[in-house]
Simulated assay, not measured.
Amino acid sequence: MNALGQQAHFITLSTPDLEAARDFYVVGLGWEPLLDVPGEIIFFQIAPGTVLGFFDALKFGQDLGHEPATQGAHGASGMTLAHNVGTRGEVAGVVRTMQAAGGRVVTSPREGAFGGIFHAHVADPNGVIWEVAHNPGWSIDDDGGVNLS
């Protein structure tokens, strides 16, 4: 393995409303924080060795050395986080749960235009877009390796 190791251990997103993120993921979806620093950041373990963090936008900008007036341009955009489920029917159930937690449905469950998937998109209260998908060509080996066919 090379020095970079083809790994990402932390995915950290700037969020303009940390309380809304906390309410959506903890209260609405029932996620358990790995670490929760009020007014600063909240981390969730989302896979073995992988953590998803939501960092208060002002503190995120400070961490990157940006002045508060310029830090807003550095938030997440042009990306999705994905949650794959085992069946097409589960897509709608997860979307309903996310919507009840305060998420906004961006695209209702439907056939995907690419890759033979059935999916939907939901934005969390801060605009982070989640794809909820059933992809029959996606699987995980016992050792954690991902297969895409």
Rank of each mutant, 00 (worst) to 15 (best):
L81W: 09
M79E: 09
L81N: 05
A69E: 14
H74I: 06
G61W: 00
I46N: 08
H119N: 15
V128H: 15
F44L: 15
M98G: 01
S108L: 06
S77H: 07
V26F: 10
G30M: 10
V95Q: 00
R88Q: 06
V51L: 10
L4S: 09
G115W: 06
I41P: 05
D143S: 09
G28Y: 00
L34Y: 09
G28E: 02
L34M: 14
S139C: 11
G145K: 03
G61H: 04
F55E: 01
L81Y: 06
N126D: 13
V27C: 11
R110H: 02
V95W: 01
F54E: 00
A113T: 04
A8T: 14
N84S: 01
N84L: 03
A92C: 03
Q62F: 09
G93W: 07
F24P: 04
S139R: 11
Q6A: 06
V132F: 02
E111F: 00
I117Y: 03
F10Q: 09
W31S: 06
E19L: 12
G39Q: 11
I129F: 13
N147L: 10
P136A: 12
G49R: 08
G78T: 05
D17W: 04
W130S: 10
W130N: 09
A21H: 07
V37P: 03
V26N: 05
W138Y: 14
V132K: 00
I11T: 15
E40C: 13
G137W: 03
T12S: 14
A133L: 04
P33E: 15
V94W: 00
A76W: 06
T107Y: 00
G86W: 01
L18M: 10
Q71G: 14
D143F: 04
T70F: 05
R110Q: 04
G5A: 13
G5S: 14
G65Q: 08
G28K: 02
S149P: 05
I46T: 15
M1L: 13
F60C: 03
R22I: 13
F24M: 08
N135G: 05
A57S: 15
H83E: 08
G49H: 08
F118S: 01
E131H: 05
V26E: 08
P68N: 10
G30I: 09
F114Q: 13
G116E: 12
R104V: 04
